[in-house]
Amino acid sequence: MKEYSQEIRALTMRWVRRLSREKFSMLFTLVQPMLFWLIFFGNLFQRAADMQVTQSSSYISFLTAGVVVMTVLNNGLAGGVDLLFDKENGFLERLMSTPIHRTSVILSRFIFVTTITSLQVLVILGVAWLFGVQPVTGLAGVATILLIGMMFGVGLTAISMAMAFSVKSHGDFFSVLGFLSLPMIFLSSALVPLAAMPGWMGFLAQFNPMTWAIDAVRPLILQGWAEALPHVGMVIGVMVLFDALCLYGGARAFRRAIG
């Protein structure tokens, strides 16, 4: 157990070091969702969006939940990228030739991605707060949002790592990533409530786990516990299922790749 924690600590620190050495990349990773979506998109559509439709005092306040979950989505889907590079340049092999527990590398990645994503979510909520969006459920609500984000993030990171272990080249990886990311966002309640979507899009969006996550986060920010709790309960159930599925697939891909 002592050895296990020594390995995981060292491997997690490596991810932190890498991020801190890539200052530009770090900056853009952190700033992009806020700048792009929350500040530009949120303010841009302030007047174009119908408050009757979004059921909120401003489009930014409606959008905040969406941006939070989008950040989880993007970080999660990109969570396997570093492992992909490690696999391609042989570093993963070097790690695996040492007497570490076979799960340590993956676990370190989960810990790292989850931590970074949680920090980012907090920053997004902070920026939203500057635009007058205050989560009505307070700190407990913020904690619940983080929990939902983590649960969703674990499954996504597992998908990403499974892909990293399975693809033949990193070109494939990024094509799939690019293909997944935007449709996941458009076919969810991130930008527009389901009720306001064209029928077929709304129909598809119901099956998107992102929709479930957003529908639980949004009332935590806008409405209050009474409206939020049923959604929170539901999303936790959905996420347990989602994570179980993703982790199972991820474990299989990992075993195939590492043997």
Binding site: E7, R9, L11, P99, I100
Partner: peptide, 8 residues
């Protein structure tokens, strides 16, 4: 240092 930790 990383490898030292991985070799415990």
């Amino acid at each position: 240092e990383l490898l030292a930790d991985l070799y415990h």
